[in-house]
C-alpha cells in the first residue's frame, strides 16, 4: 500500500509539472509544433533600422503575420525582409509595406497598407512599394542643424 501510494503521488506530481510546463510553453510562450499555414512574401527596404526577425506584421492594426528573415543585399545595399503572412490574408500587388514604430520609442513593426489592384501576391513574390523606417534621431538632427535663416 505504501509503495503504491508513493508511485501514485509521484505520477500525479509529474503530470502536474508537465501540464504546467505545457501551459507556459504553448499558451504563454507561443510555441507552435506545426507551422501556421500561410505564405511568404519579400520586400526591400533602404533601412530597417533595428527591426529584428520575429517582428509583427500588421494590417489595419491586426496581427496578420511575422517577419521570418532579414538579409542584406550587398549589390543594392538594401535589406531584404521575408514576411510570413497568415493564410486567408490577401495582399494586393500594389500594397505598401511600411516600417512603423509602436509609440515613439517602441518596437518596430511592418504595416501593410492595402492597394487597389485586384491581382493578389502569392508565395515568394515581392512587395514593390515600401516605406523605410523613419529615424527619429535623424529627423531631430535635421531640424536642429537646419539653417533657419
Amino acid at each position: 500500500m505504501q509503495k503504491l501510494n508513493i508511485e501514485l503521488l509521484t505520477g500525479i506530481f509529474v503530470m502536474i509539472g508537465i501540464a504546467a510546463f505545457t501551459y507556459i510553453a504553448v499558451s504563454i510562450g507561443g510555441v507552435r509544433f506545426t507551422e501556421q499555414p500561410g505564405y511568404t512574401l519579400t520586400a526591400r527596404f533602404t533601412s530597417i533600422s533595428g527591426m529584428q526577425a520575429g517582428a509583427i506584421v500588421e494590417a489595419a492594426g491586426v496581427r496578420v503575420g511575422t517577419v521570418s528573415d532579414i538579409e542584406f543585399d550587398p549589390d543594392s545595399y538594401e535589406a531584404i525582409v521575408s514576411l510570413r503572412i497568415n493564410q486567408g490574408v490577401p495582399v494586393q500587388e500594389d500594397a505598401i509595406a511600411a516600417i512603423r514604430t509602436q509609440g515613439i520609442i517602441g518596437e518596430k513593426f511592418i504595416k501593410i497598407i492595402p492597394g487597389g489592384f485586384e491581382e493578389l501576391l502569392t508565395d515568394g513574390m515581392e512587395i514593390y512599394e515600401t516605406e523605410s523606417a523613419v529615424n527619429l534621431e535623424e529627423l531631430v538632427s535635421k531640424y536642429m542643424f537646419s539653417d533657419k535663416g
Binding site: 506530481f13 509529474v14 502536474i16 509539472g17 508537465i18 504546467a20 510546463f21 501551459y23 507556459i24
Partner: peptide, 16 residues
C-alpha cells in the same frame, strides 16, 4: 534533474 524543472514550471504558472 527531473523534479526541479517540473517544480519550476508549477512555480511559474502559479506565480502568473
Amino acid at each position: 534533474l527531473i523534479s526541479v524543472p517540473l517544480l519550476t514550471a508549477v512555480f511559474d504558472s502559479v506565480a502568473l
